[in-house]
C-alpha cells in the first residue's frame, strides 16, 4: 500500500486525537472528573456556611479539590487500554515516547478543562478571586504540566495492578507532594495580591519538579509500558 511517513509530532497528535475522540463519545474520564469537582466544591461551600476562611486556607481548598478531582479521572488513559485489551496492539504500533507524550498531552487537556470548570465555580462559591491573575495562571500552568507528567507515568504503572483505583491516589500523593506544596503557596500569594518576587522559590521548585518528573518518566516509560 502506498504510504507517506509522518513526523513524531503527528504520531503524538494521533494518540491525543484518538483519546479525545474516544473521550468525547464515551465521557469516561470527563464526567468523573467534573462531577467530583462540582460535588466537592458544593459540599465544602455548604459546610463552611457563613464562615469566611483565610486566603491561604482557600488556596489549600482549591488544590485539595483539584487534586482529588484529577485523581478520579487521570488514570483512565492507561487503565482503559488495559481493560479494553487494546494495550498489546498499541505496544506493537508505536514507540514508547510517542505513547507517553500522547497520553500526557491528553491528561494536560483534561486538566485544563477541569481548571476551566473549577475556577469560575470556586469564585462563585467562595466569593473570592485571585488578586493577581498572571501570577495565579503561571502557578496553575506549571502545576498542571507537572501533574500531567507525573500522573501519566503513575497511571501506566497502576494499570498493571489488580487494585487500580485506590493505588493511583496512594502512589500519586507522595510523588506529587512537592508540587502541591509549591502550587498552594503560589495560589495563596496570588489570592492576597502579592508580587512575582514572593513566588520565586516555589515557582523554581515547580519548574524543577516538572523537568525532573517528565525526564524520569520518559526514561522509565518503555520499561513500565512493556511489562
Amino acid at each position: 500500500m502506498p504510504t507517506t511517513s509522518v513526523n513524531w509530532a503527528v504520531r503524538v497528535w494521533a494518540v491525543v486525537r484518538k483519546d479525545l475522540t474516544t473521550e468525547f463519545r464515551t465521557r469516561y474520564a470527563f464526567n468523573a472528573v467534573v462531577m467530583f469537582a462540582v460535588v466537592t466544591l458544593t459540599m465544602i461551600s455548604l459546610s463552611l456556611g457563613l464562615n469566611e476562611p483565610s486566603k491561604p486556607v482557600l488556596a489549600s481548598l482549591f488544590w485539595v479539590v483539584f487534586f482529588f478531582a484529577a485523581m478520579s479521572g487521570l488514570a483512565q488513559v492507561f487503565v482503559r487500554e488495559e481493560e479494553a485489551g487494546t494495550a498489546p496492539i498499541l505496544k506493537l504500533s508505536s514507540s514508547g515516547s510517542v505513547i507517553f507524550f500522547g497520553k500526557m498531552l491528553f491528561n494536560l487537556l483534561l486538566l485544563t478543562i477541569l481548571a476551566v470548570v473549577i475556577i469560575p465555580l470556586f469564585i462563585v462559591f467562595f466569593e473570592t478571586a485571585p488578586a493577581n491573575w498572571p501570577l495565579f495562571l503561571v502557578g496553575l500552568l506549571s502545576a498542571l504540566i507537572g501533574l500531567a507528567g507525573s500522573t501519566t507515568i503513575i497511571a501506566a504503572i497502576i494499570s498493571k495492578a489488580t487494585v487500580k483505583g485506590a493505588l493511583f491516589t496512594v502512589l500519586s500523593f507522595p510523588a506529587l507532594m512537592p508540587l502541591l506544596v509549591a502550587a498552594v503557596e503560589i495560589t495563596s500569594v496570588s489570592f492576597v495580591g502579592g508580587g512575582f518576587e514572593e513566588i520565586l522559590a516555589p515557582l523554581q521548585l515547580l519548574v524543577a519538579f516538572d523537568v525532573v518528573m517528565i525526564t524520569l518518566s520518559v526514561m522509565l516509560f518503555d520499561f513500565v509500558w512493556r511489562l
Binding site: 500500500m1 504510504t3 507517506t4 511517513s5 509522518v6 503527528v10 504520531r11 494521533a14 494518540v15 486525537r17 484518538k18 475522540t21 474516544t22 463519545r25 464515551t26 479494553a84 485489551g85 487494546t86 498489546p88 496492539i89 498499541l90 504500533s93 508505536s94 510517542v98 500522547g102
Partner: peptide, 26 residues
C-alpha cells in the same frame, strides 16, 4: 483473538490511527 481494537472508533478511524501512530499517513 485476545487483541482488541477501539470499539468507540469506526473501522476507518482505527486504521487511520494505527497507521499514523506507526509513522505512516494513509
Amino acid at each position: 483473538p485476545y487483541l482488541s481494537l477501539y470499539s468507540s472508533l469506526t473501522a476507518a478511524e482505527n486504521l487511520k490511527f494505527f497507521a499514523e501512530v506507526d509513522g505512516r499517513r494513509v
